[in-house]
């Protein structure tokens, strides 16, 4: 799919979603243009991860109303693997461990699934290793995590870094990062932010879910949104993040959405 600056990459309209019969998203509207970085902030339990998982296609969430279009196609009509192959990537808030499967095999399977979809020949282990080494060098990391089972016994920070490594290798068009900064120490936070900044491109967009303005000092967003009670209740520029850091969420909470002061 073609993408040019100024074109709409993701357009979410009136999105409602439930899990186990509980409505979590209650009408989300969001437009992300090609090349933009959007930050989504909001209190615990407000639905940020739900929104991210719904966009990636988690089968446990039911979309009950609304639409999400990605580069003009109906995103919600695609299976999770089809979304990934079309260039949508979600860095999980809680990355999953896969026993017995090495990280490098996992990465190669994922890359080859994309390549197959693009009509490119699959990479054999040696070719892939070369690609991988280039990517690692580009983001300035070593290869110590490659021969361990995926996320198995990884520390919290290692898991988050591993998500960014996948992002670098899979080169998505739309990257959704769900609290990739949580659980990182200051140095790791800088490393991850650096890696993300290196991956910023005019034809790639980011949606970054975070609780901390700190991350946004390193990754400067074009827009900041506040999600409360399953709705985006306020949007603004990067200054909004600073304001939230100072005042908390209560002042932006709409009537009837959660506790007032």
């Amino acid at each position: 799919m073609k993408r040019e600056t100024g074109q709409v990459m993701l357009e979410i309209r009136g999105l409602h979603a439930s899990v186990e019969g509980n409505e979590i998203l209650k009408g989300v509207d969001l437009t992300v243009h090609v090349g933009e970085v959007h930050a989504i902030m909001g209190p615990n339990g407000s639905g940020k991860s739900t929104l991210a998982q719904v966009l990636a296609g988690h089968p446990a969430y039911q979309v009950t109303a609304g639409t999400a279009r990605y580069l003009g196609t109906d995103l919600l009509g695609l299976k999770p693997e089809e979304r990934a192959r079309e260039g949508v990537f979600l860095a999980f808030q809680y990355p999953v461990a896969i026993r017995g499967i090495t990280n490098s095999y996992f990465l190669r399977s994922a890359v080859n699934a994309l390549r197959k979809h693009q009509g490119l020949p699959e990479l054999d282990p040696l070719d892939f290793l070369q690609v991988l080494e280039e990517k690692l060098k580009a983001i300035g990391w070593d290869d110590t995590m490659l021969n361990r089972a995926v996320n198995e016994g990884f520390s919290g920070g290692e898991k988050k870094r591993n998500e960014i490594l996948q992002l670098a290798v899979l080169e998505p068009t739309l990257a959704i990062l769900d609290e990739t900064d949580s659980g990182l120490d200051i140095d790791a936070l800088k490393t991850v932010a650096d890696a993300v900044n290196k991956l910023r491109r005019p034809d790639r967009s980011f949606v970054i879910v975070t609780h901390y303005q700190r991350l946004l000092n390193y990754i400067i967003p074009d827009h900041v949104h506040v999600l409360v009670g399953g709705r985006i209740v306020k949007s603004g520029g990067k200054a909004l993040a600073l304001e939230l850091e100072e005042k908390g969420y209560d002042w932006v909470k709409p009537e009837g959405a959660g506790a007032a002061t």
């Binding site: 296609g57 693997e81 990934a84 999980f92 026993r99 017995g100 699934a113």
Partner: peptide
Amino acid sequence: FYLRSRGLGLAAARGLLTYGFGAEI
């Protein structure tokens, strides 16, 4: 879901998870 979200089809994802149980040993 994690594997599918990386582009692996359902059958491949199931196969990989199942095989991992054996490979680990």
